[in-house]
Design a protein around this nucleic acid. Structure first.
Lengths: 223, 223
DNA sequence: GCAAAAGTGTTAGCTGTACACCCATGA
DNA sequence: TCATGGGTGTACAGCTAACACTTTTGC
C-alpha cells in the first residue's frame, strides 16, 4: 500500500445578495501560484479537524462573517489543479446575509464581494467550483427554505422575494410569492412588528421558521 | 505551509434493484482494520488520476459491472474514521442494472449484493455513506430520468415502475405512471418490440431516451 | 371464456399563474 | 389626494390522483 502524498484543503463559495446582485466573496492571492489573481477563500485541513470544522474555521478566520448556512458542495482533485503538488479540495457552500466584509483583521488580503457575473478567471479551478456552487444555491432555493439564509434576523416578504429574484435572475409575482411563503407552515415566524419606510404600506417583519423543506417546491422556470 | 499527510480514497455506493429489493454491493474485508466486516468497495486514488477516473477504475476493477450512472456523492474526513492514518474518502454513487456480481476474477474478495435494509455495521463510517447514497438516489429519482439507469438496455414501463416502487418503498398507480413516463418527451424511446410473457398483454419495449431531467417532477410522498 | 397484465378515458381536486382590487402609509 | 408598495380575492389552466374501462395475450 503505497499512498501517494496528498494535501487536502477546503475552499469556500460564500454567497450573498447585495445591491440586487448575487455576490461571491473573493480574496486576492498574494503568493504564487496565481499571484494577483482572485480566488475563493480556503486553506489546508488540520490534522485533528473534520472537514466541516475546517470549513467553518476558514470561514470565520478569513471573513468573520455571520453564517446563514454552510454545507459541503463537492470535491475537486484533478492531478494538475495545483501546480505545486497534488491537492484535493473539498468545496463548501456558505449562504450569508448581506453584510460588509470585515475590515481584514484576518488572514484574507483584500477579501471583497464580487457579483458572480463578473467573477471570471479565478485561480486554480475556482471558476468551475463557483459555477457549481451557484447552481447548487439556485437549485436548493426551489425545494428548501434556504432563501432565508440570505436574510437578516428580521426581514419582510419583499426582501425575501428580492433574494429569490436575484438568485434566479427572474421576476416573481409579489402577490403569489407572498401567499406561497406565508402559507407554508413553519417557514416564517411573524414578529408582530412592521417596517416604516417612505411611501407604501408598512410590511410585516418575519423571522426564519423551523421548516427546512419547501413542499411543494417553488419552481424557478416553466416556459 | 506544513501540509499534514493525507491519504485520499474513493468509495463506491453501488446500487441496483433485484428481487424487488434495493441492494448495495458490499465486499468482505480481508485485512485489518475491520477484518471480516462488510464494507463499500473502494481504494486509493493514484497520483496521476482524477477523482472521477479513480471511481470508474475501482468500479471496473472490483466489480466489472456495466454502469448505468456514476456521480460524486460527498466526501468524508473525520480525523479518526480510519485508525491507521488520516484518510479522506470521496464517495461516489453508482446505479447499475440488475446483474449477477462477476465471479470475483478481480480484487474484490466476496463482492455480493445485500439489501440495503440489511446492510448494517459496515466498516469505517460506511453506514453513514450508504445512508447518504440511498437518500441521494431516492431524491434524484424524483426530478431526473435516473430510474432508467437501473434498467437493462430494453425494458418495459412496468419494469421501470418496479424500480421506482422498490427504491421509494411505495406503490405507484400503474396507469398514471405509464402516462407520465411515456408522456415525457425524450425520456423513453420505443423499440417497436414487445415482450411475451405468460398471461397478460405483451408490453412495449423501450430504451433510455436523451432526456436527463424530469419536469415536472414525479414526487414520492404527499401525505 | 377467464385471468392477468398493458394501456386509455374521464373526472374531481389541488396548485400555480395572472391579474383585478383593496389597504396603509408618507408627501 | 396621490403615489407607493403591502396584501387579498378570484378565475383559469395544468397537473395529479383515483378508478372505470378496453385491449391483448396464455391457459
Amino acid at each position: 500500500m503505497a499512498h501517494p502524498p496528498f494535501a487536502v484543503t477546503v475552499d469556500l463559495v460564500v454567497l450573498t445578495v447585495r445591491a440586487d446582485e448575487l455576490c461571491v466573496l473573493l480574496v486576492r492571492r498574494g503568493e504564487e501560484p496565481f499571484r494577483g489573481r482572485d480566488a475563493l477563500p480556503g486553506g489546508f485541513v488540520r490534522p485533528d479537524e473534520d472537514l466541516a470544522t475546517a470549513a467553518a474555521r476558514e470561514l470565520a478566520e478569513e471573513t468573520g462573517l455571520a453564517v446563514g448556512h454552510l454545507e459541503q458542495l463537492a470535491s475537486y482533485g484533478d492531478p494538475d489543479r495545483d501546480p505545486r503538488q497534488r491537492v484535493v479540495t473539498v468545496a463548501h457552500l456558505a449562504l450569508v446575509p448581506d453584510q460588509p466584509v470585515p475590515t481584514a483583521g484576518t488572514d484574507a488580503a483584500e477579501a471583497r464581494w464580487v457579483p458572480v457575473t463578473q467573477a471570471r478567471g479565478l485561480a486554480f479551478d475556482h471558476d468551475r467550483v463557483l459555477a457549481d456552487g451557484v447552481e447548487r444555491a439556485r437549485a436548493k432555493l426551489e425545494y428548501t427554505a434556504l432563501g432565508t439564509a440570505f436574510c437578516d434576523g428580521e426581514f419582510t416578504v419583499a426582501q425575501l422575494r428580492r433574494v429569490y429574484e436575484v438568485v434566479w435572475g427572474r421576476a416573481l409575482d409579489p402577490r403569489n410569492f407572498h401567499r406561497k411563503v406565508t402559507g407554508t407552515p413553519g417557514l416564517l415566524e411573524p414578529t408582530g412588528e412592521t417596517t416604516t419606510r417612505d411611501g407604501g404600506r408598512p410590511a410585516q417583519l418575519f423571522r426564519r421558521g423551523a421548516a427546512e423543506q419547501l413542499h411543494p417546491p417553488l419552481l424557478r422556470a416553466d416556459t
